[in-house]
Amino acid sequence: MAFTNEQLERYSRHIILKEVGAKGQKKLSQAKVLIIGAGGLGAPAALYLAAAGVGTIGIVDADEVDLSNLQRQVIHTTPDIGKPKVQSAKETMEAINPDVTVNTYHTFVTSENVLDLIKDYDFILDGTDNFPAKFLINDACVMAKKPFSHAGIIRFKGQLMTYVPGQGPCYRCVFKNPPPKDAVPTCKQAGVIGAMGGVIGSLQAMEAVKYIVGAGDLLTGYLLTFDALKMEWHKVKLPPDTSKCAVCGEHPTITELVDYEQAECDMKK
């Protein structure tokens, strides 16, 4: 596939980068990225991946756009209220870049559908808001040998890490099991500063793009945390020994996907 003149202009700031170039831009156009959650994290990630010319972007979300989303979920606009988030996200992405094919999945991720959802994609972004989904996505990506970006945001803090099969720890290596429901606050309970989704979700898009074009070092083996009140970043080296992990270790005890119980307050909306 050769680029049209319009595409050469659209992607000129990428193509001029030695780490991307025409070759990397072509890889982006052939890449397939799945974003799970079209919310605080998924919204900015989807905008940047669409703008970057990622050829196929899948987006999974069961919710409709709510007024309380618009403080941070910048892919949706006021007239989108009531619309499925996946539909609203698709319309915005296609408006940004008609080169992109957007596949929508208006559903929650479950142990029944997650392997099927991720199977055709090269890289997965976890933009979900709850631990059952985060562990499910981790375990499914480990089992299906898919690279993915984990991220979480709360109040004025954010974190992310990248899992690439065979290249370092998975989310479960670090966090073992989901906390009991309501033991650890969610954004809805504790609040989150809107721009935090932009900071961390954009970094997830950054990791996806770097993975696709093969540039630089990924956040494999590290957890990057950001504290906006102190304006401090901290890159924590994770223990490299994954052999004892219950899912990605040498003798996994988790060999089937689990639907953990969801915090009730998050199920309502």
Partner: peptide, 9 residues
């Protein structure tokens, strides 16, 4: 290392 759960809803 802390659990951070938010991001979507």
């Amino acid at each position: 290392l802390y659990f951070m759960g938010g991001g979507q809803a």
